[in-house]
Each structure stands twice: as C-alpha cells, then as structure tokens.
C-alpha cells in the first residue's frame, strides 16, 4: 500500500480486506530498529510506504506457510512510533488502543492504524500467501518477516485525520 492509493480516504470504523505485503515487527524488533535510526545506521529494510504488523507468529507446521499469526497489543509500541513514522511507513496493524500522542502523530504523518481480529491467529494464518525472513533472526518469533497476505480482514482504528474508533473507551 502506498500513501496515494486510498489510505487517506479510509475512515475510522470501516472494515476492509487488505491484499499486499506487511512486515511483522513487535517489541524487540522496534527497539532494535529505533536504536539503528537514532544511531543514524543503515536499516536492514526500507520502511518507506510499508505496513508494520505487530505480530510474533508461532512456528510454521511442516505443511503450512506460517503458524498462528494474530496481532499483539499495539500500545507497547507507542514509545517507538515517532522515529518509525519519520521513516515513512504507511500504516500500522495491531490490536487495542493507542496513546493520544500516537493519534496526533498518525494525523501529522497522514498514516493509519488498523486493528486485525484479535486472538484469531489461526484464521489469519489462512490469509497468508508467503513468508520471508527479513532480519533479526536471533529474535525467534520477534524477527521481522515479510508476509504476503490476501483478503486480510482489518478495521480502521485511527484514520489519517486522527479519528479514533476507541476514543469513547479512553486511554
């Protein structure tokens, strides 16, 4: 997904089926990426216009592309969002609420935050067409994988105007 192909038209609460590529990254991968960014080092992947999926899948059984692969809690990544957004990412996928600051950053950078069906990792595994290790192999389930997904169900939780599906629930 790139920033000029409809992302800005999406509204909080809307349900979409996404087909394309996402990169998995959760706590430790974010910590490493942000350390590299702060140290002005070269990143092992180009984040520009990419989608980050907060996910640490189970291992792939022998006959499968991937194991269970649902979203993890996004708010743990809130403290890493600004430097990652500065690298030009298009969207984030996870579960649950974000901080007020993240909401403002999403608006500022015209990004979007989606939630995927939480606790439905087996269902989501069926939507993954391919999986490729990108970096941080030593992190095991927390490594960065490039996933090709088809008709991956998502709900817009914070849109590019900063409207928040969860605003009524507080922080």
């Amino acid at each position: 997904m790139v920033k000029d192909n409809g992302l800005e038209k999406l509204k909080a609460g809307e349900e979409i089926l996404f087909s394309g590529y996402v990169y998995t990254a959760r706590d430790q991968a974010h910590k490493k990426l942000v350390e590299l960014i702060k140290g002005k080092k070269k990143l092992p992947l180009d984040l520009k216009n990419q989608i980050i999926y907060y996910c640490g899948p189970t291992k792939a059984p022998l006959d499968k592309i991937i194991g269970s692969c649902g979203p993890t809690t996004s708010s743990r990544m809130d403290k890493f969002v600004e430097p990652i957004l500065k690298m030009g990412i298009a969207a984030m996928i996870g579960k649950g609420r974000r901080s007020k600051k993240v909401r403002e950053l999403i608006k500022k950078y015209k990004c979007a935050y989606f939630v995927a069906p939480a606790g439905c990792g087996a269902l989501l595994a069926k939507k993954v067409l391919s999986k490729k290790l990108v970096c941080f192999k030593e992190l095991g389930p927390e490594a960065v994988y490039k996933l090709k997904v088809n008709a991956f169900p998502l709900i817009v939780a914070i849109d590019s105007r900063g409207s928040d599906l969860y605003k009524r629930l507080g922080e």
Partner: peptide, 9 residues
C-alpha cells in the same frame, strides 16, 4: 488444522 488458537501460546 492443529494450529494454535492464538499465536501467543
């Protein structure tokens, strides 16, 4: 399919 109900096992 003997897949974990949730990836967080």
């Amino acid at each position: 399919e003997s897949l974990a109900i949730c990836q967080d096992t």
